[in-house]
Write a protein that binds this DNA or RNA. Structure first.
Lengths: 311, 311
DNA sequence: ATTGGTTTTTTGTCGCGTTAAAATGCCTTA
DNA sequence: TAAGGCATTTTAACGCGACAAAAAACCAAT
């Protein structure tokens, strides 16, 4: 039996689907329908179903095929963490090495190939992704050059001024429609954080939950330009914010604000919500600036915060 | 002698550089310095210099190397149009075929390979580019799917509301610094259009000049998030706006507005400029909406605008 | 008509050799 | 010491074949 990335991903998606749709034991898992739903052919669906059988989520049905087995929370947990693409880890490794100064400003593809033991295709994928996110650039001839986007404080302030503009405006978009279930899901998560989980979750997870909330809100605007713009910023932020130790007390304060914000939205008070979002982001921005108050060129006044960024 | 794309591009860049820096006859064109400037090694610079010799812009200097020859406008014109990458044309062809309905919603890479006679590498480049611009998407398994971003009127209105937000705000950014030479260059171009050239230039060129102006302005904000956001929108717009016959009288009106806008900026009246930009975009938005008042699904009421573009 | 099972076709990734072109290093000269 | 000339090394795109996996077509059963 083969378990390819696609198969694993599909299995996780199907599990999510079962949970989201509240499907009960004994219901058929129809191959064709699942294939249509997730835009793949039946082949990977079959493999995914076999995988789900092994996890105990599905069992063979009468007359072939699979039906849903039992559904305790424990069973799901096994598939909970979406198996991130192998590439994603290497991508983060490169970002890591870059931010911590292990990679020079300019580098060739072959050098990266050697360092990270990749195939050419994979590396090309990763490089293009980084280029799209705007922190590496192809040189006219051979090689690539890292851009200073991530490392400068200036970029941070810039990104917050941009968010300050678009996020409140998105809430006031004419096409804005609340996605209640998604928002309520976010509220549960934020409540969970406030109730103490915040001191236990990883940086990565915390970042994911918070940016996920902001993205859920902006998605309600149903204007892809707002949505894409924020998502692009978040992909960039992820690379930095992952790494710095987030201060949990102020993070908790932010989560409380998130809860307020969600409640305003759920109550239909869009205008107030937009105002609140503005204030929330303004606070966030000053927080960040205070935390990393080093000018790009200037020597650091606070050695504790100045991690060497580039060789 | 080899003339690769890089060589040609370099030659054009060097020519531009000579013009921009007002370098005179007899000045040395130092290989190393040019290489550093354009971030390439000496090899392609040498090839480019040979090319410039053929064009009559450079001539061999005493003791080797090249110096600037004579500099009449006629000589430059030969190198004026930057040789666009081969890929760009195919990219536009695909967009063309897509917009005019010659390509199905889903398609495999091999099918595209056959249709457009590309190598795998090239196609991968193009597909990734389209994916980044947000109008095609990789399916989980095999194949790609075109997204409806481009074709819907809704997306148009969305994009204009987004621009209406960011473009005036960009002018008011704290880091805003006028790029006088660039703006004056734009003013010359706009004046040239208003003076009658507008009835002669191609759609493509008109689009390029106008979006170039808007991008020049937003670049003065020196906030990469504003800049990137607008550039992304423009890349999308290009695909559509290329194709529809632009109405020259209202286009001329827009150019007149552009001139006013530039004058406000050059006079340092940023606040007024931002206000003017807002009004300008509002007008533009209503224009567009009126011009393409066809719902995505509905049959076209104006057959004149649906030109079959490619076989 | 749906569904599952099976087979066939197609796809797209990987590995590897080849090669033009870009980068680099060395030498000479002014 | 800064420049060009020249030779050498390195790079990355291309082409091709192999192979696993996904898509598609076909069949049988209910």
């Amino acid at each position: 039996m083969q378990t390819t990335p696609l198969t694993q991903q599909l299995a996780a998606q199907i599990a999510d689907y079962i949970r989201a749709e509240r499907l009960g034991e004994g219901e058929r898992l129809v191959e064709r329908r699942l294939g249509d739903l997730f835009r793949v052919s039946r082949s990977p669906v079959r493999a995914a179903l076999k995988l789900l059988e092994q996890s105990g989520i599905a069992r063979p049905g009468d007359g072939g095929g699979y039906v849903i087995a039992r559904l305790d929370a424990e069973t799901f947990r096994a598939l909970d963490h979406v198996p991130s693409y192998d590439d994603d880890q290497i991508y983060l490794d490169i970002a890591d090495d870059r931010v911590s100064g292990n990679l020079p400003d300019r580098i060739t593809e072959n050098e990266l190939l050697r360092r990270y033991k990749l195939t050419r295709g994979r590396l090309t994928h990763i490089l293009r992704r980084m280029a799209n996110e705007g922190w590496i650039e192809r040189l006219p001839g051979h090689g690539w050059e890292f851009l200073p986007v991530l490392t400068s404080l200036q970029a941070y302030e810039d990104s917050y001024r941009f968010r300050l503009l678009i996020e409140p405006a998105a809430i006031l978009e004419p096409g804005f429609v609340l996605n209640r279930p998604a928002l309520e899901h976010c509220r549960d998560q934020q409540q969970w954080l406030v109730d103490g989980a915040i001191f236990e979750v990883s940086n990565a997870r915390l970042f994911e939950l918070n940016s996920g909330l902001h993205e859920t809100i902006i998605e309600c605007s149903r204007n892809s330009f707002f949505i894409d713009a924020l998502k692009r910023i978040d992909r960039l932020r992820r690379l930095i914010d992952y790494r710095q130790m987030l201060e949990r007390d102020s993070a908790r304060h932010r989560c409380r604000e998130h809860l307020e914000l969600i409640d305003l939205l759920l109550a239909g008070k869009r205008f107030e919500a937009a105002e609140f979002m503005k204030k929330h982001l303004e606070e966030l921005s000053t927080l960040k600036v205070r935390a990393r108050s080093r000018r790009p060129g200037e020597p650091s006044a606070e050695p504790a915060t100045s991690r060497s960024v580039s060789a």
